[in-house]
Nucleic acid binder design. Sequence first.
DNA 1: TAATTTTACTTTCAAAAAGCAAGTATAGCA
DNA 2: TGCTATACTTGCTTTTTGAAAGTAAAATTA
Lengths: 126, 126
Amino acid sequence: MGKRITKKSAPPERRSPCPVACALDVFGDRWTLLIIRDLVLGKTRFKDFAASPEGIPTNVLSERLSRLLAADIVSHVSAGEGSKHLAYILTPKGNALMPVLKNIRDWGLTWEKGTQVLMAKVPLAR
Amino acid sequence: MGKRITKKSAPPERRSPCPVACALDVFGDRWTLLIIRDLVLGKTRFKDFAASPEGIPTNVLSERLSRLLAADIVSHVSAGEGSKHLAYILTPKGNALMPVLKNIRDWGLTWEKGTQVLMAKVPLAR
DNA sequence: TAATTTTACTTTCAAAAAGCAAGTATAGCA
DNA sequence: TGCTATACTTGCTTTTTGAAAGTAAAATTA
């Protein structure tokens, strides 16, 4: 069945009013920023995210996308004319994470040996 | 007893060569960047980190500090003249995370309602 | 149009990680 | 010498993760 009882977990409580802590409550985990990375790189579909080399489990991907939708970081739109499929795109709030992602990428490239950017930087530069 | 058998977990395997993914392997969790935030703000001692408003559990703090030491993001130094206690400070690799932290802070301040910087920005500005 | 495949998830469950409370070792002080 | 603070470590319970299998609707193929 498509939709069952989806338990709305209690309103996520903040650990502190610190902007860093609140930001980490939203994307402080091993996967969320990788999904946002993919979105920045132009991916829009569930299967595209699932196909990324890190191999995010589909249930984690599903859960993270729900959270990103709830946090107004991504939005759900139709995937092209006539298609009934849905695509994910970044909202302004999500796009505002690009500087964060860029800095993390640059830090990784500088300090973590053997890392490399596989995709063109173009989308990140937009 | 001070030191027991400390099981060295297997060499942390990378999920991909992506610099973002590798960076998240290092600090992609709910606590690590908060410890680095505290270090940037001038805190140096175990108890100082533990006293932060988010209330990090001490075993998590201990484990994260070990990982940060192993990752060469913090180093262990004497806490003042004569003291036999130890303090933690950021290495150059750790200091290089300041732009990341700044961007996360700014994103939080802009997009997460009710967040506020409790400590002076001075150390972040250095 | 019926059967098959793809898409987009959800469910299940074992394993790992998180979090709390209590314990332990060392150092400094009275 | 005992007391207290620091800096962790150890158990134990709860929560989260992650792999695999299941499900339903849409798209494709026969």
